[in-house]
Design a binder for these strands. Structure first.
Lengths: 331, 331
DNA sequence: TCGAAGTGTGGCAACGTTGCCACATGGCGG
DNA sequence: CCGCCATGTGGCAACGTTGCCACACTTCGA
């Protein structure tokens, strides 16, 4: 009666509003909607109807604040434009959604500062956990100090201190190299990104093992630090391939480097695989389109993402059995 | 004195803790940290030191709840594994980070249900705004009913009812088609995804305009509803190209369809561009690698993403001039 | 007939912040 | 000498939820 006469308050409906409309207390309304605790059948019905008419959507932040837990996981990858990370993110998104979690996603563009910033944002949001492809151990240490559940994906900096989902990089690299040796190659170059990362390191290891085992001498000149993008790799590859005793095969440890090498070969008029064999980690779509084909270790990044979510949920003690909310999805 | 003797409470430090350690009230602590309102120089220093030692990170949710605003934007795209959407997301992520916002990202895998679910999650989180590539007008309507600021990207379902960032699809398609006509092509097929979308529709329009203007009769058989992925497009293309009066050029309205057509041409042993001209929307990396090259409308999805964020911030009345927090980034 | 259990419901505090207000100083002019 | 401003600081309520507890009513067995 004495209320203001504003036509339509642009304010979003709150639990209090629903309670008032249904003519019951907030406590009861909460119980009716969440399905925890007693609530009479008729009351429940009235409450649900009221919620529907008001278009009530519970305030996730308020809920989190009160319950001291969050249904959000933080995800931090290196570069969304790289199909490997995009796939990883897609896998995480899918699994997270299924488990009733939402995903807060960022990429650092190889910048440690951006990475740290993102980590802080995750802590600020009190995410339930974080999945990341780190640039160094620093962020992971920070997150662990903040008691955040962390799962490392793809590469590992804090082995033993938190969960990780990684593939057998050394083994795959070894098998790949053995394949090249079987084809008769003796001068094989390795294009590697970041040896400080477990991926680059393990793949180098596998490569070296296979060479040693195959009785091929290790040649430092054939290990190329090819930088972090296709353009740099292209330049580096042109250099290497222009040498007199150029390699007859190149092993690129990721899709970007493979692209660079491929372009370099194209620049130089080299045919693959006649003039140069090219093998790679990360099976990208273009590899099957490009004229003669490239052999690649198919890394199922989507699966890695899903697995990472699985690990994280396990770690959180959540068995993935989330209740569905009671109110129906709006039309 | 009478406090419990737990060694290290795993509980995260709160404003209250910082205040106690600094020996001032919560109010003062809040002011000192946020930089709003009075705070003596010495007090400020003590508070900052206390925050540092405790590793204090402000609780973003509590802040949002109190201030009734959120520093998060919701982003909903169709498919993260499609480079177009990945780029879009990357652009959004970048611009959002710069403006001090965090991003909540999901993809619906073409599922309207997943889309609606995500929209509800956004509302529940009380995001500041949403950027999306919608599947239909329903989600947009829902979000608008909930008074959420919405920016449509790539395609538009609620024209005039909310902001949108779209390119001149009709114009670009027209110019592309004109190019083909100039090359002498008269039998041109259009591979289109979803004519209910403004993208597909406008591109079809531009195509039709160019044909009409160029005096080429419209042939329904040359408009192919090619489905939503490369595999379907491939099959469809094989069908079309096997006809006696097969087209001499194909215009694919997106990168997936172009890939399908390219593979079909490859299957049939057709050379591009000698036997078949292929033009496309979305300039993907593979197009420049694949042997003879494909002409494409380079859509800068990253830029679209950035622009969408710009629009959204404008809409929110935020001029992008966010204050940096006072505490330094942890080591 | 009375108490105990069973079945619902409401009151209230708390989660971690912030912003309004009131209050405590000190220096100053009237 | 008193009141007033400027400069700081603390108290308190509120944001929207949830969960504990207390309470009211019904039913039932002793």
């Amino acid at each position: 009666m004495s209320s203001t006469v504003g036509d339509q308050p642009p304010r979003r409906a709150t639990l209090r509003d629903v309670a008032q409309l249904a003519g019951v207390s907030q406590s009861t309304t909460s119980r009716a909607l969440s399905g925890e605790g007693y609530a009479g059948a008729d009351v429940r019905e009235r409450v649900l109807a009221a919620a529907e008419t008001l278009g009530y959507v519970p305030h996730a932040m308020a809920r989190s604040l009160r319950k001291q837990d969050s249904q959000t996981i933080g995800v931090l990858v290196s570069d969304l434009q790289n199909p490997f990370y995009a796939d990883l993110a897609a896998g995480i998104a899918d699994a997270a959604r299924r488990a009733g979690y939402t995903m807060m996603l960022t990429d650092d563009q190889g910048s440690a500062e951006a990475e740290m910033h993102a980590a802080q944002a995750f802590v600020a949001t009190r995410v339930a956990g974080v999945i990341l492809t780190a640039l160094s151990g620093d962020v992971v240490e920070y997150l662990l100090r903040q008691h955040v559940a962390v799962v490392e994906a793809d590469r590992q900096f804090a082995a033993g201190r938190c969960d990780a989902v990684v593939i057998d990089n050394a083994g795959a690299a070894r098998r790949m190299t053995e394949h090249l040796l079987e084809l008769g190659h003796r001068r094989i170059a390795l294009f590697v990104d970041e040896t400080a990362w477990t991926t680059g390191n393990a793949r180098s290891e596998g490569f070296r093992e296979a060479l040693t085992h195959g009785g091929v001498a290790w040649d430092d000149a054939f290990v190329v630090q090819a930088g972090w993008d296709a353009a740099l790799a292209r330049t580096a590859a042109i250099d290497v391939l222009a040498r007199r005793d150029h390699p007859t095969a190149i092993f690129a440890v990721n899709n970007l480097l493979a692209e660079g090498v491929w372009r370099a070969a194209s620049d130089l008029g080299l045919r693959i695989p006649e003039d140069l064999s090219l093998v790679s980690f990360d099976d990208s779509r273009w590899m099957s389109m490009v004229t003669p084909g490239i052999t690649a270790v198919a890394q199922d990044a989507v699966a890695v993402g899903r697995a990472a979510v699985g690990r994280l949920l396990e770690r959180l003690g959540d068995r993935g059995c989330r209740r569905r909310p009671r109110w129906s999805t709006p039309r």
